[in-house]
């Protein structure tokens, strides 16, 4: 399991908090509505934990977007199916949503949230990463690779009360990336 000490966890949580705040702001500006968010939860996970968490999010759409660079990983966005229509309306999609439009909406939201949040934390930590195109994700059909034994998952929930919108951003960092991430964090914590 990955080990990070209390100070590092606090620092990472604060940095993520700021990043997610920027992501929420991005979405809020686009839809002109206040977006609430939870405090980032940071935890090391085994493949089983990860699978269990994904499986527990029934009735959600999923999309994923990978990032490469100094640190590598994937942003996984889950979005409750019930909130789609209301969000689609404020984002100027035609209703009712057909399958293609639903996918487009989910990918759009994923791109907005993950781009803003990745931009947020890489700029704070002066890391350089590139975000790739988002893709729809059907977790039940895909068997994730067991090439890793432990990953760091940062989870934040976004919600918009008046429209039943409920989405979750999971940032998964690959094993080697955590060390890379800790270098600038340690530097920030020094002196």
């Amino acid at each position: 399991m990955i080990e990070i000490n209390e100070d590092e966890r606090d620092a990472l949580q604060e940095i993520m908090n700021i990043s997610m705040g920027q992501a929420a702001d991005a979405l809020a500006r686009l839809i002109q509505t206040k977006v609430s968010l939870s405090i980032p939860a940071i935890q090391a996970m085994s493949p089983e934990d990860f699978q269990g968490m994904i499986n527990s999010l029934s009735d959600n759409w999923f999309a994923r977007q990978s990032f490469t660079g100094t640190i590598r990983g994937e942003v996984i966005m889950s979005m409750h199916k019930d909130g789609c229509n209301a969000l689609a309306e404020v984002m100027d999609f035609d209703l009712p949503l057909d399958d293609a439009a639903t996918e487009e909406l989910v990918l759009e939201v994923t791109n907005i949230l993950s781009a803003a949040c990745l931009q947020g934390f890489t700029s704070q930590l002066e890391l350089s990463t590139q975000l790739n195109m988002p893709a729809f994700y059907y977790p039940l059909q895909s068997v994730h690779s067991n090439e890793w034994s432990s990953i760091l998952i940062i989870e934040v929930e976004f919600f918009i009360e008046q429209m039943q919108f409920d989405a979750r951003i999971l940032i998964g960092l690959s094993e080697g990336s955590i060390e890379q991430l800790l270098i600038p964090i340690k530097a920030l914590l020094e002196d």
Partner: peptide, 25 residues
């Protein structure tokens, strides 16, 4: 000094007597 940088939060704190609002980072 807040991570919640949405206009709604800014408006709310200035109505509650905060002098200024600064964004994190």
């Amino acid at each position: 000094i807040s991570a919640d940088i949405q206009p709604a939060a800014q408006a709310l704190v200035s109505s509650m007597g905060a002098f200024r609002f600064l964004q994190k980072p």
